[in-house]
């Protein structure tokens, strides 16, 4: 049932609580896109959804998470998106290296087929109208599991092994976790809970007595505390 496996894939994207990232630098009157190409990259993901690319957020996020750490930090947001898109397109045989190098289409290259969703995960993305039993209820004490799977997972490192309280059951969603190639593991529909973690539970003395961090957790990520 669970998509969580033991391995090591803790990449730079999972950065909640890290030090040394520098100052936050808001830009007054920031444009939606700073350059024309940024808008094209943003839109490319959207229009590729009917081709089974980009619409699967787990796969798309995993493609970004595979960007080497130094590049991940150096790249702008849309450079990362572009890198991820190219990665997805190449992995799916939609474009070849030669085509990317030349900017021209290789007439011998295979044409992709339209498909809305990966066959192993037909439920897709979003709240599901499925009546499944909930393992946890509001008020339950839970612990976030340890997980370093080889693929994409939505369980922040800073919560792993920490105890919190379920404050909301958000309903049933498909698991978005992927394998090490970025393929969604399967639907595994389950409840997604909002869990309240006390600041001190997560950060010890650096935390605040009064404050809390709220994190959404798929049921598989939790165990009773």
């Amino acid at each position: 049932m669970t998509g969580i496996r033991n391995s090591t894939h803790d990449a730079i994207h999972d950065m909640g609580g890290m030090d040394g990232m520098g100052p936050i630098e808001p830009e007054p009157n920031e444009p939606v896109f700073h350059e024309t190409w940024e808008g094209r990259v943003f839109a490319l993901r959207r229009v590729l959804v009917p081709w089974g690319l980009g619409g699967n957020w787990g796969s798309f996020r995993f493609a970004q998470e595979r960007v080497p750490a130094a590049d991940y930090l150096r790249f702008s947001y849309y450079e990362r998106w572009f890198t991820a898109l190219v990665d997805l397109l190449r992995a799916n045989g939609v474009v070849t290296d030669a085509e990317l190098a030349s900017g021209g289409v290789d007439p011998e290259a295979p044409r992709p087929e339209r498909r809305e969703r990966p066959p192993q995960a037909p439920l897709g993305f979003g709240l599901l109208d499925l009546d499944l039993p909930a393992r946890f209820g509001v008020g339950d004490a839970v612990r976030a599991r340890h997980a370093s799977p080889p693929g994409h997972v939505r369980l922040p490192r800073y919560t792993q092994g920490k105890c919190g309280t379920v404050v909301r059951d958000n309903g049933v969603y498909a698991l978005q976790d992927t394998d090490e190639r970025g393929q969604q593991l399967g639907d595994f529909p389950q409840h997604v809970y909002t869990v309240r973690f006390a600041s001190r539970e997560l950060w010890g003395d650096r935390g605040s007595e009064r404050d809390a961090i709220y994190v959404e957790m798929w049921e598989d990520y939790l165990e009773p505390a």
């Binding site: 709240l127 958000n170 969603y173 961090i213």
Partner: peptide, 13 residues
């Protein structure tokens, strides 16, 4: 005395 609540959007909410 103000409580800070940080919401980390890890799922689809």
């Amino acid at each position: 005395d103000v409580e800070v609540r940080v919401w980390d959007s890890t799922a689809e909410i």
